[in-house]
Write a protein that binds this DNA or RNA. Structure first.
Ligand SMILES: [Mn+2]
Ligand SMILES: [Mn+2]
Ligand SMILES: [Zn+2]
Ligand SMILES: [Zn+2]
Lengths: 136, 136
DNA sequence: TCCACTATTGCGAGAACTTGCGATAACCTG
DNA sequence: CAGGTTATCGCAAGTTCTCGCAATAGTGGA
């Protein structure tokens, strides 16, 4: 079953706008911003409103094709849901970003699960701190 | 040395606006939003611009009197720097917030420190997930 | 192939900040 | 306790994302 058929089977619709957002996420290697996706799409299709891009990212996330993470403070980063998940370390001094395997974060996940009954998504927000180069 | 003197000794100035922001943070028990602080101050001093509140929160953070955390996605929460730090668990289903002692997060902090040389600030961003009540 | 239903769109307005700028007022110095 | 320096302010405009609404266009069924 194609993605379009899957989407339709859930009572949603496959529009040209939705397809374009999905394509843009496929072309992007890593996490992109909604603004960047909107910029790319509007370069060829200026009539497509940015709000449509934001709404489609949300819809595609509900449908399970897309997720988002938060790297530095404000911006939301979007990416396909089928790429391997990983955590992020962000240096608040130099801004450098580093990926870490989820395995490193798992012990904390297990602890929160058993002690608090909380199922943590430890890849959702980057961990902020000071990187090796910036530490005195 | 008073806070005002400390601030002046760093080449900054103690204005009525800055004092009001500091007072508002002192009155607030926990994390507040910039908007809430601006609302309180403007109730008595309508001529004070919201942008002044935003700029003062930033300045007071640089000066070391204030810090911020991120609970759910969009809003930044501000609080005095001298209150005890703690982590947060936020449920993405029901939105509930729960505080957890930093002690729970410390093992991960040590691991990131030794394996990556990264000094993590694990209280800066809340951990997102599904709480006990919302889990099936 | 045509139709009715309604998910989705574009647009305008709004929320929540951010930024540039000229005016104001802290503050240090003497 | 003036006077000059400049940090800080208020204001206006810009940015990024959100939301309500009427028009449009995918869809499944006839
Ligand atoms: Mn932050
Ligand atoms: Mn998020
Ligand atoms: Zn760094
Ligand atoms: Zn919950």
């Amino acid at each position: 079953m194609s993605v379009a058929d899957e989407i339709r089977s859930k009572g949603r619709r496959m529009t040209v706008q939705r397809r374009l957002v999905l394509d843009a996420l496929h072309r992007a290697r890593h996490h992109t911003t909604a603004e960047e996706i909107a910029r790319q799409i509007r370069a060829r299709h200026p009539q497509i409103d940015p709000s449509t891009v934001y709404r489609n990212l949300e819809a595609l996330e509900e449908l399970g094709y897309v997720t988002h993470t938060h790297l530095d403070d404000r911006v939301t980063r979007w990416h396909r849901a089928d790429v391997e998940r990983h955590g992020h370390l962000v240096c608040r001094s130099c801004g450098s970003e580093q990926e870490i395997p989820l395995r490193t974060l798992e012990p904390l996940g297990r602890r929160l699960r058993t002690e608090q009954g909380f199922r943590a998504d430890l890849a959702h927000s980057a961990i902020v701190g000071i990187c090796r180069e910036c530490a005195p």
